[in-house]
């Protein structure tokens, strides 16, 4: 991998050329069926989720997506989930646990959607529950940051047994623009902010925030490679006694 400026990585993570979550899900999983609704309030299309099989093994896949051939960027607030999206994710995680299916999350979000309705419907509460209950899921749970991993809205789906990140992805406490605004009162210093924020996969793996960097996927052959890595990890976790898996997961997060 060549050395790139951190902000160039930010732009690549946000790029329109980035593989779509929907494409990725449907290439990874056979017989994928999208499942809708949070059974309480609504259905947020920013959360693309359902069941399928990975080399014959049933899995639940939950993604946060930006606009694609099915939904517009405006429909999904450029990949910002609303409380009903997070609630749907939580519902499907608990369902996966019931049927002993591993969970895979694929994340591409600048952050949870900030608006008044989201506040009224418990944006903070739902993220808190995805962290708390997700971490305790009794099935293998693999999280992958595909593009942007923005703040609490990304962390909500990134408390698995392992967290992987694509080569051109970022994971941070807030956007470089937001960071520059808050700390330096100058959003135009985003490029500089990206440098100090340590948000690239190379920086994140050094700090143990992520466990593995996945080469960017574009072609079917490259996606197959990624799928093989997912399958191997899933099998490794499935072979582990439940208590051991949970203990390792807990230790991972306690260490920060």
């Amino acid at each position: 991998m060549t050395k790139k400026a951190a902000f160039d990585r930010v732009l690549e993570a946000r790029s329109n050329d980035k593989i779509k979550i929907k494409t990725l899900v449907n290439e990874i999983a056979d017989n994928f069926i999208e499942l809708h609704g949070d059974r309480a309030y609504g259905d947020d299309s920013a959360v693309y989720a359902g069941i399928g099989s990975l080399n014959g093994q049933p899995v639940t896949i939950i993604g946060i997506r930006k606009g694609d051939d099915e939904v517009s960027d405006a429909d999904v607030h450029f990949g910002s989930a609303e409380p009903d999206g997070y609630h749907k994710a939580l519902r499907l995680m608990k369902q996966a646990e019931k049927f002993n299916r591993p969970v895979i999350t694929l994340i591409n979000t600048p952050g949870a959607y900030p608006d008044v309705e989201a506040e009224y419907h418990g944006q903070g509460y739902l993220i808190s529950q995805l962290i708390l209950q997700g971490m305790q899921l009794k099935v293998p749970y693999i999280s992958v940051i595909v593009g942007e991993g923005g703040s609490g809205g990304a962390l909500a789906l990134a408390v698995g047994d392992c967290v992987w990140a694509f080569e051109n992805s970022i994971y941070s406490i807030l956007s470089p623009e937001g960071y520059a605004t808050i700390l330096w009162k100058d959003s135009s210093r985003a490029r500089e902010a990206a440098d100090v924020m340590k948000l690239t996969p190379e920086d994140l793996i050094k700090q143990g925030i992520i466990d593995k960097i996945i080469p960017e996927v574009r072609t079917s052959a490259e996606i197959k490679q990624f799928k093989a890595q997912l399958f191997d990890k899933m099998e490794e976790l499935r072979a582990m006694p439940e208590q051991e898996m949970l203990q390792k997961r807990f230790t991972r997060y306690r260490g920060f």
Binding site: S128, M135, F256
Partner: peptide, 14 residues
């Protein structure tokens, strides 16, 4: 930075 974000997960574990 990101380590602050990870505190949300760390405390949740306990």
């Amino acid at each position: 930075g990101i380590e602050s974000l990870m505190q949300m997960a760390k405390v949740s574990e306990t």
